[in-house]
Simulated assay, not measured.
Amino acid sequence: MQVTLLGTGCPQVSTDRYGPASLLDWQDKHYLIDCGSGVTQRLLGAGSAGKRIEALFLTHLHSDHLVDLYQLIVSSWHQGRDKPQRIYGPRGTKAYAAGLMALWKPELDARIAHEKRPSTTALQLDVTELQDGDVIRDGALSITAIAVRHQPVTAAFGYVFDDGTHRVAFSGDTAYCPELIAAAKGADALVHECFIHREMLALPGVRGPETIQNVAAYHTLSTEVGKVAREAQAKCLILNHFVPVVFDRMKLLDEVRADFAGPVLIGEDLMRFDSTSRSITHRDALIALPQ
């Protein structure tokens, strides 16, 4: 089981950290978690492509987590995908997907008529809305949806991938969440968001103290995420979805290490974790983790 961080950013625009998205490879299948800005480019950078995605799992319907869904659908069609796009997500996913395709229908109809491609199967959507505790099975692999605490968003999930040998948990966006901690118990890797509150300063005309307080309230603070990993007994903590996208890495590492003694990875786009070899690759670096 391999995890590649495709995008580790947030709504802030960054050329280093694209929008939230992760790729989980299991056997010869590719599963996409969220669909933030630049996801199709990052998929190619990770050696994959939209046409190879077995299923997309949306954590919630905030724009930064699904803004490139239409790009994924159309680029997969251009790449020769031969099956519908399978999408899992919270309540509201069906309506969103239908509205998205309706919005683009005139443009898409013109493309189909003019380009004369051999199939339009890739443009069909197979959407399933999940509830807390639902389990999707694919052979030995199970994917469990865990309701997380992202209020006032009332439908938001983390996901746990488990094949009986290895387990990887994705937090999605959440405040401190005991339910996620329980579901992620003993995971080979906990991929968790991180709100670095000491770096979020008030900017006149952009954000004030109330804005910062409200955004922080539905994310996990950098001073909390180490506790989450410790309580989950995670074998490795992989931090992603950073708010803000520019921060002092060493200070963040010190904050997390104060509560968690295991390996901590400050995620970067296209960083890859392999649960079998217990290794990390990023660009030309290869790093071994404790077995």
Score class of each variant (00 low, 15 high):
residue 275 S to P: 02
residue 30 H to L: 06
residue 40 T to L: 06
residue 2 Q to H: 12
residue 99 G to Q: 09
residue 275 S to G: 01
residue 24 L to Q: 01
residue 139 G to R: 09
residue 210 E to C: 07
residue 271 M to V: 07
residue 224 E to G: 05
residue 248 D to M: 11
residue 175 A to K: 10
residue 69 L to M: 12
residue 156 A to V: 05
residue 70 Y to A: 01
residue 176 Y to M: 09
residue 224 E to W: 09
residue 50 G to K: 02
residue 155 A to Y: 08
residue 43 L to R: 02
residue 21 A to F: 03
residue 113 A to G: 13
residue 226 G to D: 02
residue 20 P to R: 00
residue 202 A to I: 08
residue 32 L to K: 02
residue 192 H to P: 02
residue 108 L to F: 08
residue 272 R to W: 03
residue 111 R to M: 15
residue 241 H to R: 11
residue 60 H to G: 03
residue 132 D to K: 10
residue 36 G to W: 01
residue 75 S to R: 05
residue 51 K to H: 12
residue 199 E to T: 04
residue 151 Q to M: 14
residue 183 A to S: 13
residue 15 T to G: 12
residue 3 V to Y: 04
residue 227 K to I: 14
residue 47 G to W: 09
residue 193 E to I: 10
residue 14 S to I: 10
residue 209 P to Q: 14
residue 234 A to I: 05
residue 157 F to H: 02
residue 174 T to A: 09
residue 121 T to L: 12
residue 269 D to W: 02
residue 188 D to A: 06
residue 119 S to A: 13
residue 128 T to H: 15
residue 135 V to G: 10
residue 210 E to Y: 08
residue 77 W to Y: 07
residue 43 L to N: 03
residue 290 P to W: 06
residue 220 T to N: 09
residue 93 T to C: 03
residue 77 W to A: 00
residue 13 V to D: 15
residue 207 R to C: 15
residue 276 T to R: 10
residue 12 Q to F: 15
residue 183 A to V: 11
residue 59 T to P: 00
residue 82 D to V: 08
residue 251 K to A: 10
residue 169 A to L: 04
residue 91 R to K: 14
residue 210 E to P: 05
residue 29 K to D: 13
residue 7 G to S: 13
residue 15 T to F: 14
residue 118 P to I: 14
residue 131 Q to M: 14
residue 137 R to I: 06
residue 143 I to G: 00
residue 52 R to G: 05
residue 87 I to L: 10
residue 76 S to C: 05
residue 263 P to W: 04
residue 239 L to P: 02
residue 204 P to T: 08
residue 268 E to C: 05
residue 85 Q to R: 06
residue 95 A to K: 08
residue 278 R to W: 04
residue 211 T to N: 14
residue 209 P to T: 11
residue 127 V to N: 07
residue 52 R to V: 05
residue 53 I to T: 03
residue 100 L to Q: 08
residue 111 R to G: 13
residue 215 V to W: 13
residue 118 P to C: 15
residue 40 T to E: 06
residue 207 R to Q: 15
residue 220 T to R: 03
residue 152 P to V: 10
residue 8 T to M: 07
residue 83 K to W: 06
residue 214 N to L: 13
residue 119 S to M: 14
residue 216 A to L: 14
residue 206 V to N: 12
residue 227 K to A: 09
residue 26 W to D: 04
residue 158 G to V: 00
residue 49 A to P: 05
residue 39 V to M: 11
residue 289 L to K: 02
residue 170 F to M: 04
residue 222 S to P: 07
residue 132 D to V: 09
residue 1 M to I: 10
residue 167 R to V: 04
residue 110 A to S: 14
residue 274 D to E: 08
residue 246 V to T: 12
residue 170 F to L: 15
residue 270 L to Y: 00
